[in-house]
Amino acid sequence: MDLRTSLHRAAGLQARTVVLVEGGSDRRALEAVARRGGRSLDGVAVVPMGGITNIGHFLDLFGPRGLGRSLAGLYDVAEEGYVRRGLERAGLGPALSREQLAALGFQVCVADLEDELIRALGVAAVEQVVEAAGDLPSFRRFQRQPAQRERPLAAQLHRFIGTRSGRKAQYADLLSDALPPARVPPALDRLLAHL
């Protein structure tokens, strides 16, 4: 979905709170974790932005100078500058620290959401999810590739999840559904607590 289509669809939302996430897999993971934890997202729209560089457009639309919605979000640590600058331009504070971003509802993933899910579950449980999905033979072939052989198992799993179109979204659901409520990644836990 392109940015214009995404903005057009988002513009009709009547939610009181808008959670901005990078992509569809992030949305699916957040919704799955909320569902598993018995947490209702009524009145909350989880909006994939099609990449963090689009955050300014969504903050213009939903922020204090736009529709005035309550905002929150999930982002990768490497993209923190985009989030900080976007929120500053939207009038939500200058030179925001990570703690201030969190207080506004914008939670950081250590590397990215897939990394958070893999660490929360543990590699053995993630391999079981891969097996249950019927992807274990494909994963074993992937592990034998020269570029993968020396990498840690967690890094192999992370890369495998992102190798084929649609796999990130599929595994966002599968890994989130496999999470025990007590092992929700901190970024997702803090985000849901904020809503």
Results as ranks from 00 to 15, higher is better:
Val21Leu: 08
Glu22His: 11
Gly23Cys: 00
Gly23Glu: 02
Gly24Trp: 12
Ser25Met: 15
Asp26Thr: 13
Arg27Glu: 13
Ala29Met: 00
Ala29Phe: 01
Ala32Gln: 12
Ala34Pro: 04
Ala34Phe: 05
Arg39Gly: 04
Arg39His: 13
Arg39Lys: 14
Leu41Pro: 14
Asp42Met: 03
Asp42Glu: 08
Gly43Arg: 09
Gly43Trp: 11
Val44Met: 12
Val47His: 01
Pro48Lys: 08
Pro48Gly: 09
Met49Trp: 01
Gly51Glu: 13
Thr53Val: 12
Gly56Ser: 11
His57Phe: 09
Leu59Ser: 10
Asp60Pro: 00
Asp60Ile: 01
Leu61Val: 02
Phe62Tyr: 03
Pro64Tyr: 10
Gly68Asn: 04
Ala72Gly: 11
Gly73Leu: 05
Leu74Val: 10
Val77Phe: 04
Val77Met: 08
Ala78Asn: 15
Glu80Thr: 08
Glu80His: 03
Glu80Tyr: 00
Gly81Asp: 09
Gly81Ile: 01
Gly81Thr: 12
Tyr82Cys: 09
Tyr82Thr: 12
Tyr82Val: 09
Arg85His: 15
Arg85Asn: 14
Glu88Ile: 01
Gly91Met: 12
Gly91Lys: 06
Leu92Ser: 08
Gly93Gln: 02
Gly93Cys: 04
Pro94Trp: 02
Ala95Trp: 08
Arg98Phe: 00
Glu99Pro: 01
Gln107Trp: 06
Val108Cys: 15
Val110Cys: 07
Val110Trp: 00
Ala111Tyr: 06
Ala111His: 14
Leu113Met: 09
Leu113Ile: 14
Asp115Tyr: 15
Glu116Pro: 08
Glu116Trp: 01
Glu116Asp: 12
Glu116Ala: 10
Arg119Trp: 04
Arg119Met: 07
Leu121Tyr: 12
Ala125Met: 07
Gln128Ala: 13
Val129Asn: 03
Asp135Val: 13
Pro137Thr: 10
Pro137Gln: 09
Ser138Pro: 00
Ser138Asn: 05
Arg140Pro: 02
Arg141Ala: 11
Phe142Arg: 10
Gln143Glu: 15
Gln145Ile: 03
Gln145Cys: 03
Pro146Asn: 05
Gln148Ile: 03
Gln148Cys: 06
Leu153Gln: 12
Ala154His: 03
Gln156Tyr: 00
Gly162Ala: 09
